[in-house]
Design a protein around this nucleic acid. Structure first.
Lengths: 251, 251
DNA sequence: TAATTATTGTGTTGAACAAACACAATGATG
DNA sequence: CATCATTGTGTTTGTTCAACACAATAATTA
């Protein structure tokens, strides 16, 4: 992929390259330090925060646009990605004065955009956040400590989180959000964080094990200042089979 | 609203009026004769079947486009409407040769469209299906006996049904799909149809009543050749309260 | 008008699951 | 080697779910 040097070049090429009025925004979830994080960008100009996003090439599937954006910001392929909502209010991106667009060629950017929202589940430690040409910074932010975001990006995050919660009942999110090996307490804290409530340790373990998609490994010693918990990993075969049959968690 | 006289006028005005590359398609569900129906249109030209759809005006919220389309095809306001997916494959509407567009002004219609899918739940008897200017016919079709549909409209229906099933756990669909007064067997057959499986009559009733959103009325005599079942209706207050707290059906 | 028939209304039981809870084992710390 | 926070496991109790049976009723018919 050819790199776009600067803003002006991007703006003038954009009109030829992209579908008008249509963008993609991604809510990229990660889990670290017992909290749920979202990957955000900070604009060079003005320091405003926003979600990683981009546009749809004229011959590109919208899903592929999302995949491309994710790859650009995280360096990762093969990400779990889920389209969840299209945001189509005509005033959703009204205050475009935030962008300092000059010249006639940038007009397309000032027009109204409908954006299609995707959320992604990634393994925190595998991501190397990369700012785009617009941004000075790309970093993880605790979902409960979000800065003010541009446009309706706050709503987009809220909706993404709501959909993530909804999907808890069908989809074992630990598979995508945790490293390959993890402990039961870690898995539990993930669920507690997403659901924003505490769960009973013993009942949680029973429920998880009853799904028969986990495999228990040897002890883990290092680090923790207390009794070393077992490590688990997902059993891919059983996992795939279970998902196909339709898992029912009870959250 | 000014009526659009014919195809050519529509095509030439469209470019000024609508956002490019963006459409809305609606899967309108109704329930009648113990079966789930979808409202379809049949084109004058070629007799192809499709979903009711339309385009997004330059200053119109996408949700409002869907509402407008629904009003035009059914005559109804205040419809339960739910956006469920954006279909963004570049070849999804490839075979545009189905449309016989002539003239330069129609070019916009031949380009690629991303369509945003909505499903609606309506009370069958209240709908008076109205063809649009493209169509000779607008009618209800059993969801299990669909004709061949244009483009990816079959996929759109499939996805809508999947989402409807998913929503069964949070949303009491009977409220939108049945007439104000209905019997327990009717409600049950609705669920059986949507889920495509039979349910135990007694357990179903217990579950429904335990939600405390139904109000039982007097007997119903007319019609049925057997014991007359009670009539029920939704108790709007309790219903609203329950939905807000998050219903959990167990399907 | 009384028997027939299909359907509705209701209740019970046993099994599966969920919530609440207690105690022993462990590994680092001082 | 005693302490401490945390993990591993099991029991009890109540709730929900699945499977099932029988009496009541409204139109039909004999």
């Amino acid at each position: 992929m050819k790199k776009i040097r600067d803003f002006q070049e991007f703006v003038s090429k954009g009109e030829r390259l992209y579908l008008r009025h249509l963008s993609v925004d991604c809510v990229i979830f990660g889990f670290h330090d017992d909290s749920l994080k979202v990957l955000l960008l900070k604009w060079k100009d003005g320091g405003h925060w926003c979600l990683p996003g981009g546009f749809v090439k004229k011959n590109e599937a919208v899903d592929d646009s999302a995949t491309r954006i994710l790859k650009d910001r995280t360096g990762l392929d093969d990400i779990f990605l889920q389209q969840f909502h299209a945001f189509g209010d005509p005033f959703r991106d009204r205050n475009k004065e935030l962008l300092s667009i000059q010249g006639k060629s940038g007009k397309w950017l000032m027009e109204r955009f409908i954006t299609i929202g995707y959320y992604a589940l990634v393994e925190y430690s595998k991501v190397s956040p990369q700012p785009d040409w617009l941004s000075e910074e790309c970093k993880w932010v605790d979902i409960h400590k979000l800065p003010k975001l541009i446009y309706d990006h706050q709503d987009i995050v809220r909706k993404a989180l709501a959909e993530l919660r909804r999907s808890l009942n069908d989809h074992p999110i630990g598979y995508n959000l945790l490293p390959e090996k993890f402990t039961m307490p870690e898995l539990q804290r993930l669920y507690e964080t997403v659901l924003d409530k505490t769960l009973d340790r013993r009942n949680f373990q029973k429920k998880m094990l009853s799904l028969k998609i986990l495999e228990r490994l040897k002890e883990r010693k290092t680090g923790g200042a207390h009794k070393a918990p077992y490590l688990y990993r997902f059993d891919k075969k059983k996992y795939a089979k279970a998902v196909k049959q339709g898992l029912r968690f009870g959250f």
